[in-house]
Amino acid sequence: MKHVALLVLVAIFSISPLLAQTGDEAPERTPVRSDAEELKSASRLPDAANDARKAGAEEDEIQNVVKDVQEKKLSPEEGANTMRIMEENSAAGISNKGISDYVAEQKSKGLHGEELGQAVRTELQARHRVRVEEGEGKTERKEEREGQEAETEKEGTQKVKSETKEGQSEDQSQEQKGTMKKQSEEQPSSKGKGKGK
């Protein structure tokens, strides 16, 4: 029985690495390149990542791009290029959010190398423009709203003022009317007194 248990253990140990590998499907590889070129582009990957990090690029995006290279969805050169673009964007204050997804999407559409880099650059600039425009739109709308509110407030205060003025004038006119009536009432009696004399 001891032997059986041992055998099971050995079998599991020998199978487990194979099990771990089954998840990694053979990914499609980018055009065949010479070993020296591959070595060179792979060697530049950490430099690109380091520069992107220093420029303030989003760590998640860097990780995703490197993982894509690791899983051979991207070539090391494409990964390095993407991170160079991320570095440029971060330096210019442009967000890199969603770049890794976009790269993967474009890659699945068949874009490679320089074309891919160009597409990523254009897309990020377009996204940035939209964000800026949205931001401007928001501030414009906010200013408009504030302007309208100020106008309505002004109108309201003016109305209140005019109403109070009207009220005051009405009161005054009523007071005047009252005094006039009193005077008119007093006058006939004095007349009457005079007549009686």
Partner: peptide, 26 residues
Amino acid sequence: SLDKYKEIITAITLDAKATEKFVQMK
């Protein structure tokens, strides 16, 4: 092997501290 080299390079790149060390050494 070249594949092993790439594997190590990507593993280093995922780690910010290791990347910095690599860059300095390089």
